[in-house]
Design a protein around this nucleic acid. Sequence first.
DNA 1: CAGCAGGGGGCGA
DNA 2: CGCCCCCTGCTGG
Length: 441
Amino acid sequence: MPGQHEVTCGLSREVTISVLPRLNMEELIYELNRRVKNLDRENSIKDRLVGILRDVMLEEYRQSERRSISDVDFSNPVIVPREKRTKRIMRENAPTAYAETMSSSPGPSRQRSGLDVAMNPENNDTRSENRMNAKEAELNTDQAQLQQEQLCDVPSPSSSTLPSEDTPPTQVNTTADSPIVIKEEPFDMTTEDGETRACDDDANVDSPTLGTHVFNIMNPMSSSSYPKNPLGGNKSREKISTASQQPNPDHSDVRQWECHVSEDDRIRQIYQPSNPDNAVSFPDDRDTGFVDTGHEQSNVQRDQPSNFPTYDNRPSLVPNDNSMQNNFKPYKCNQCGFRSMYPHNLKKHMKHHTAGKRFMCNECGYRAYDKYRLVEHTRTHTGEKPYSCDMCDYKAAFKSQIMKHMKKNHMTVKPYSCGICDHKTYQASDMKLHMKCHALG
DNA sequence: CAGCAGGGGGCGA
DNA sequence: CGCCCCCTGCTGG
Ligand SMILES: [Zn+2]
Ligand SMILES: [Zn+2]
Ligand SMILES: [Zn+2]
Ligand SMILES: [Zn+2]
């Protein structure tokens, strides 16, 4: 051990940030120990270490648990796609609150949000908007208050039942009154489930960018994959930075399908006012006991000028030299290869790796770094479906769902048509899938 | 096609 | 920087 120290001691004098990834555990610990004394952050760092250690121990515990449950679970040769594993389990564990919630007949007026507008297109928009918001504010008051209380009710980390894939939701401290507890964890270095998910996210996080890129190549007509209304009068969404949104797609790429103008924008406008989430407002929950120790800040963000892309001398897990795309996305995560055009988004992304996912669903262990996302997520448990279609009885939990529904069921034209066969669809992603079939033969 | 998660960006504090 | 929202991708039915 002394020898080790001499080595690391010698090493530590010339340790630079960029070599950190190459240090072994002992060297890291030594280095940390040495440096932490120079800072006033001993406590904060200790907190983080406690968190890490806690996670390690939990992981240990979980593994031993898992080994003992060798029947149905993961020893099972059935291949569960990565990332879906947790999702599936989440679904299996999903409570039956759904039926309960939905059984109260949604009183025709109750959940019809965007519908009035759609059915009476001549309605004055602002008027109906106000009416609708008032109605929904009313509707959501209870829920908002409930969640608000829950948000304030932060269990101590030690007592919190950590959600796990092996832990049925019933073990989570839920009550009949509040099946869903939105919990904001004080300090937390991604506990077990978060860890799992974070890893999943990592695996996941690279492809979307690429996917989007590919898609935009395929569909150069739009900056955001759906055709824009030529009138363009749609909110602030038409971004000045359309150009910056994606790298210039390579137009030479073969696009074998085309998209005709859709009614998207009209639908968007119809449903614009009816967003119930506007009514779900929380007081500033930064006051509710969450101690921002700065843990969610990644080292990456801390140690570099804000306008400088991440340092990273490690070999990237993902091919990162790919020219154009990367030139437009200079902000790179040094832990998974995620790239973004904006530092803001990189910071957001880094929360996947750090303690940033403060908001945890007690029902299933889902974690979010954004409270709004958790609110939306909890609807999957409560069955709350605040969006409803004006033309039929369909109800949706997310706004995007109802927009899809409108396009599918109440839109006359399917804007995406295949150039190879007769296939038409209303959904860009479907067309993309369809084209894959052609590509495969 | 429905359900849902997450990237990305706007906006206000 | 947090919140909110739009949009898209992925997956299962
Ligand atoms: Zn990352
Ligand atoms: Zn949940
Ligand atoms: Zn409908
Ligand atoms: Zn085709």
